[in-house]
């Protein structure tokens, strides 16, 4: 129960942060990604400032978390262990970048925007879930072929 409550509170704070920073508005994100706008004065630096704000808290916070023996409500801290800079990482980042650049939505803001009941947001989130399930199916099939 405490883990559920902690996750709910974390999700809430995350959502407040997205809303407060303006990052739920795809045009703000596209305004940052439009680097050619730097020359013409239309570039929107908001996303860079959001990243700076997030890292200014998360980096020292993670240092603190590393020093603790274990999380408050869990046996172990699930720090990522994969350090490989490999083809799936780069190919996945390219595919994600393609989709992100097309409409200016990444997973966090897309889900928070479900609150607006916008039909395009709902379509995006359903497609995103199908994309995730497709990768899962594809991975399972690949591992089956390798073991066969």
């Amino acid at each position: 129960m405490p883990t559920l409550l902690a996750a709910l509170v974390s999700g809430l704070i995350f959502g407040f942060g997205l809303a407060f920073s303006g990052m739920t508005q795809p045009t703000k994100v596209l305004g940052f990604l439009d680097v050619l706008g730097i020359g013409s004065g239309t570039w929107d630096p908001t996303l860079a400032f959001v990243m700076i704000g997030a890292l200014a808290v998360a980096a020292p916070g993670y240092v603190l978390a590393r020093r603790r023996e274990r999380p408050l409500f869990a046996e172990i801290a699930a720090w990522p262990t994969n350090r490989a800079i490999d083809r799936p990482l780069v190919a996945g980042a390219v595919l994600f970048g393609l989709g992100w650049g097309l409409v200016g939505l990444c997973p966090g803001p897309a889900i928070a925007n479900l609150a607006t009941l916008s039909s395009r947001i709902v379509a995006f989130v359903i497609a995103m879930a199908i994309g995730m399930l497709a990768l899962d199916v594809w991975r399972r099939r690949n591992s089956l072929e390798k073991t066969a």
Binding site: L18, A54, A58
Partner: peptide, 21 residues
């Protein structure tokens, strides 16, 4: 608001690690 909103996102990440790992 960009910096404050970002800081909230960072706080959410730190809380999830400190509490749930």
């Amino acid at each position: 608001s960009a910096l404050v909103g970002g800081a909230l996102i960072g706080l959410a990440a730190v809380l999830l690690m400190l509490l749930n790992g």
